[in-house]
Design a protein around this nucleic acid. Structure first.
Length: 812
RNA sequence: GCGGAAGUGGCGGAACUGGCAGACGCACUAGAUUCAGGUUCUAGCGCCCGAGAGGGUGUGGGGGUUCAAAUCCCCCCUUCCGCACCA
């Protein structure tokens, strides 16, 4: 039996596409544009595994389909190539990260070409290329100019033993992954980007995008906007005010104590001398705990009173002030009023330390649990002592604006909005990243003039940490020490580098105009191609990459570089591929499947088809080597429809075929088209299998039947279909052939199978002409022995008839 | 704990807007082809009873709505992902 000779055909067609530049995107084509983007690949040392390919194959199929539908498709890729692994490798082996990176990129590119991805390779970009990072630096300068990049002392993970700062992922159980040394929090001078200035817009504009529900929710939670009130509490005997944030100002009358974060700046001034030792010990213990430990130990509330008292502005009550690590310095104002009756955390704390619990919202039982329902409750015990103000009787929802404006009118507080989102720590103490275009002159940061960009990463042999916590760049004195180009005064270069997120924040723009030396992207090209119509990648980047990229995009929008408020219109996350054992693919489990071994054994088309046939794109699903074999059987069957045992073309020029076959083909044309629009590749493939089975059963050789099949299969199995298309006598690539239309009259059913039920149970099916009326259907059904037996002479109470679908007798 | 997604044969999965559950494929069984293995072709394949015809039962569990529920509603269980006391 002849089989599809993939080992010979596939490289041949790949070469053809490369030589003819088949997949070049055409700038300013009058055809409608379609910009389809994959998440930016990080070229790791281990190469691609089959799981990485799911998204790439899906977008490739869609792009091939769109080209046939007449779209001008932009589909390209590049390399997010800065990052830690190459640097760690350099430290171990002395091999320059640029060399490792170039090798990894070569592997990735080769593997991608081997599966027949239809990228426009002329647009390939690499974040480590100075011609690329020059524009990353350029964007940073725009942020710097606008006050969106600033310097702050931020604690980092400092490992004294290794003499370096560690990323979170380099720390295991509070110790360095390498060597297992102690890691401590140490404040260092860092660049921070003011993403919080865009919090509202990042939240609001989520309305403009078509993204998975879960991702939208994650972004909303990450931004974490909450509305409430800032309230000022006077302090007993101290000339200072304590500002707290609450989302429930309606419960102000229920406050029974106050809590500050242990790091709160007022703690020192407020602590009673007699309590100093205890307070100091608690603060020190809290400082020693990492964020993680603080969260883990959260089961049991801890805290100490500091001996000070605050005055409740609504009733003049004196409330004891505590410090406790369940209050975070980084959120709100770092201080709260505790209302144990109506907040579960305060309730637990009050119970643990015997503090009073007061009910101010009736409707629950505050002795048993905090009552938090802000819809059904009614305010009680909430009047000022002089009765001049009261919110008693209101629901919390109604009381909140009332008390907030009362506080505002008396200068005691005001409506306020706080976010969980924090500013973005943007510097790394590493070599293999973009240098900051910043000079330090007399202690002040100054922008490197634009015409001096890029600030190149200097050559070095020594990638070891400087030992001071600064990046290895600090060791390169000839680079660090320079002069201010404006004044000639001595200057020191910034030695931090940018994080890996930087280059991936804007790569989708560079693809539009990758070789432009004058600007990041030509405005006309940007207007033509943007926004990205479909963005596909893993859910692991649902928050950070997508939020950071949106932030940069909005800044670029504000300065007129881009014309759309959002970069990515539609987003899809492909599911993860698990190993054959159902576990996540990983080297250590030894269940990683490499595309190279699959292509060697089954061919690229089989791999592509199988990855899409496994199940819905978004679902995670386990790999099956036997499944790939099943797909090769299908491709071989297709091959044999066209080519006989001797390798000769079987197809003839006849146009007729049995009506069942014509129907099957046209139903398939419709189904595959519809499934493409919905990105349901698995069911599209199933339908093509059904169609091929039908063609084979009738031994169809008609060109009129076979050619449309080649066309619709070509996005899935492009090598096989190019080969068949060519053998059918066509000179040109199949890639731009018009997508075949289906004939509506052949898709329409003539006869319908109607299910006949008695009391909702299926008893028989009858074949009726489409649109048969109820009388006809009943007569046919009643003529059926199997139906009659179940009716058994019982009175028919009701008959439900759905034409062409179902007839249900309700009896008894 | 909160937020999200999901639970269908031995396995991956299919099922429009509530209307024949299990398309398509894998695995398996039987038969044909082949010297044989592989390939290919034909048929069968949820579970239970039955020689068969046929009957019963069945979409994580329990209730409900309906002529009719994988699909809608309520309660519960499990798995995966994200977040981690956000006042």
């Amino acid at each position: 039996m002849s089989r599809y000779p993939f080992a010979e055909t596939e490289p041949r067609w790949q070469k053809y596409w490369e030589e003819r530049r088949t997949f070049r995107a055409e700038d300013f084509s009058p055809r409608p544009k379609f910009y389809c983007l994959d998440f930016f690949p990080y070229p790791s040392g281990s190469g691609l595994h089959v799981g990485h390919l799911v998204g790439y194959i899906a977008t490739d199929m869609l792009c091939r389909y769109q080209r046939m539908r007449g779209f001008n498709v932009l589909h390209c890729t590049g390399w997010d190539a800065f990052g830690l692994p190459a640097e760690q490798y350099a430290v171990r082996t002395g091999v320059h990260p640029a060399i490792t990176t170039a090798q990894n990129i070569a592997t990735f590119r080769r593997q991608m070409k081997r599966i027949g991805l239809s990228y426009d390779w002329s647009r390939e970009v690499d974040t480590t290329d100075p011609d690329y990072y020059r524009w990353t630096q350029w964007i940073f300068l725009r942020l710097f100019e606008r006050g969106l990049a600033y310097v702050a002392e931020v604690p980092v993970n400092w490992c004294p033993e290794l003499g370096t700062v560690l990323a979170n992922e380099e720390i295991v159980d509070g110790r360095s992954e390498v060597g297992g040394f102690e890691v401590v929090r140490k404040p260092m001078r860092q660049w921070v980007l003011k993403i919080t200035a865009y919090a509202d817009r990042l939240l609001e504009d989520l309305r403009l995008v078509d993204w998975p529900h879960s991702t939208l929710e994650m972004q909303k939670n990450w931004i974490g906007r909450s509305v409430g009130a800032d309230v000022e509490f006077a302090l007993d005997g101290v000339n200072a005010k304590l500002r707290i944030f609450t989302t429930r100002p309606d419960t102000l009358f229920g406050a029974t104590y106050m809590v500050l974060a242990p790091e709160h700046p007022l703690v020192d001034a407020l602590t009673d001398p007699g309590r100093r030792a205890e307070v100091g010990a608690y603060r020190e213990a809290a400082a020693r705990k990492s964020d993680l430990q603080r969260a883990e130990l959260s089961k049991e509330k801890t805290g100490v009173p500091i001996g000070a008292h605050a005055i409740n502005p609504v009733n003049g009550e004196k409330l004891p002030v505590w410090i406790a690590d369940y209050v975070l310095m980084s959120y709100g104002t770092g201080a709260i009023m505790a209302v144990p009756g109506h907040d579960p955390r305060d309730w637990e704390f009050a119970r643990a330390f015997g503090l009073p619990i007061r009910e101010v919202v009736a409707g629950g039982n505050v002795e048993e649990a905090a009552f938090v329902d802000d819809v059904s409750g009614t305010l009680v015990n909430s009047s000022t002592p002089d009765r001049s103000f009261s919110i008693d009787g209101f629901t919390p929802a109604a009381a909140i604006p009332k008390i907030t404006s009362w506080l505002e009118s008396r200068g005691l507080g005001r409506r306020s909005v706080h976010y969980k989102l924090r500013d973005w720590l943007f510097s790394r103490q590493r070599y293999w990243g973009e240098p900051f275009p910043i000079l330090w002159v007399e202690g002040e940061p100054r922008a490197v003039p634009e015409q001096m960009l890029p600030v190149r990463l200097p050559e070095t042999e020594n990638f070891r940490p400087s030992g001071s916590g600064e990046s290895p760049l600090a060791n390169i004195r000839g680079w660090v020490e320079t002069a201010d180009p404006e004044t000639g005064r001595p200057a020191r270069r910034e030695t931090n580098t940018m994080p890996q997120w930087a280059g991936s924040c804007w790569y989708y723009l560079r693809f539009l105009d990758p070789r432009n030396r004058d600007t990041l992207v030509d405005a006309k090209l940007e207007k033509y191609w943007m926004p990205v119509d479909l963005y596909v990648g893993g859910a692991e980047h649902a928050v950070l990459h997508l939020l950071y990229a949106r932030f940069w995009h909005k800044v670029l929008f504000d300065i007129g570089v881009v014309s759309t408020p959002e970069p990515f219109l539609k987003l899809i996350h492909q599911g993860t591929l698990l190993g054959e054992d159902g576990q996540k693919m990983s080297k250590s489990r030894g269940n990683v499947v490499s595309p190279d071994e699959m292509i060697d054994a089954f061919g690229a088309d089989a791999l592509r088809l199988y990855e899409m046939f496994m199940g819905p794109l978004e679902a995670s699903k386990p790999w099956s080597a036997q499944g790939v074999e099943g797909i090769t059987r299908f491709l071989d069957r297709v091959w044999r429809l066209f080519v006989d045992e001797e390798g000769r073309l079987r197809a003839d020029d006849s146009t007729d075929a049995p009506i069942e076959v014509r129907r099957a083909l046209h139903r398939t044309l419709r189904k595959v088209t519809e499934d493409f629009e919905a990105l349901k590749f698995n069911t599209a493939i199933a339908q093509m299998m059904t169609c091929v089975n039908e063609l084979q059963r009738h031994d169809v050789r008609s060109r009129a039947m076979l050619e449309p099949l080649v066309l619709i299969l070509s996005p899935f199995a492009p090598h096989l279909c190019e080969e068949l298309w060519n053998r059918l006598g066509h000179e040109e690539t199949v890639a731009y052939q018009p997508w075949p239309a289906w004939d509506e009259s052949l898709v329409a059913q003539v006869m319908a199978t109607v299910a006949v039920q008695v009391n909702g149970k299926l008893r028989s099916t009858i074949e009726l002409p489409v649109g048969a009326d109820q009388e006809t259907a009943e007569a046919a059904a009643l003529a059926d022995q199997r139906v009659r037996r179940h009716l058994d002479g019982a009175p028919i109470r009701k008959i439900i008839y759905l034409p062409d679908k179902l007839l249900n007798f309700v009896v008894g």
